[in-house]
């Protein structure tokens, strides 16, 4: 991969999306030996409001630090999906929380959805790790960093006592996205189904 690969993690402020982006960038830049750049955009609110974190990964030095045509978008809220899906590349991956994002933008992309926040709450046991569930899913869907690298990056970022919780969240997100992907299909702007 010598081309720029652009990822965007979006949702509401306070959901940990900036951290998810940082971990993705660390996996690429520190453990996979690639170039990576993470940037963010958020409003003045500490919680709430649309928030995004962008990660650009490339084999070559990265000049423009923001996304130009997004290869993979995560949207945890409808507001974020509406606001940040306008510059998706043709054939891009769109991962949504299927409980919260009902209105899907039209376009030619691979749509994958599962209840991300509820998975964190019910299957991992803590809502707070929804960002890591989403991160695992983004790793599975994009393949832009190795799973081993992202595991190392997660471990280096979280306190000792929460390592197991976060690794579990990452794994469940990874597995959910893999199975969701099998039942999703490229949507051509007409009818579509969220895979559950």
């Amino acid at each position: 991969m010598s081309q720029r690969y652009e990822l965007r993690f979006s949702g509401a402020g306070g959901q940990g999306l900036i951290l998810a982006g940082i971990i993705m960038a660390e996996a690429a830049a520190i453990y996979d030996g690639k170039q990576a750049l993470q940037s963010q955009s958020y409003g003045p609110e500490a919680r709430g409001g649309a928030s995004k974190s962008e990660v650009i990964i490339s084999d070559d030095p990265i000049d423009y630090p923001k996304a130009t045509a997004v290869d993979a978008l995560l949207a945890l809220t409808q507001e974020a999906c509406d606001k940040y899906s306008g510059d998706l590349k043709e054939g891009a991956i769109l991962l949504v929380d299927s409980d919260l994002v009902k209105k899907i933008p039209k376009g030619d992309f691979l749509l994958v959805g599962f209840p991300i926040i509820n998975t964190a709450k019910n299957e991992v046991g803590r809502t707070i790790v929804a960002n890591i569930v989403a991160l695992g899913a983004m790793v599975a869907l994009t393949g832009v960093v190795t799973k081993a690298s992202v595991e190392k990056a997660v471990l280096s970022r979280v306190p000792e006592a929460f390592r197991e919780l976060n690794l579990k969240a990452l794994q469940i997100g990874f597995d959910k996205a893999m199975s969701a992907r099998e039942t999703s299909f490229t949507q051509m702007g007409e009818e579509f189904h969220l895979s559950r």
């Binding site: 830049a29 520190i30 170039q35 750049l37 993470q38 940037s39 630090p65």
Partner: peptide, 9 residues
């Protein structure tokens, strides 16, 4: 702000 807040290797 972009350079101040972005993360790179």
């Amino acid at each position: 702000e972009i350079v101040g807040h972005m993360r790179e290797r």
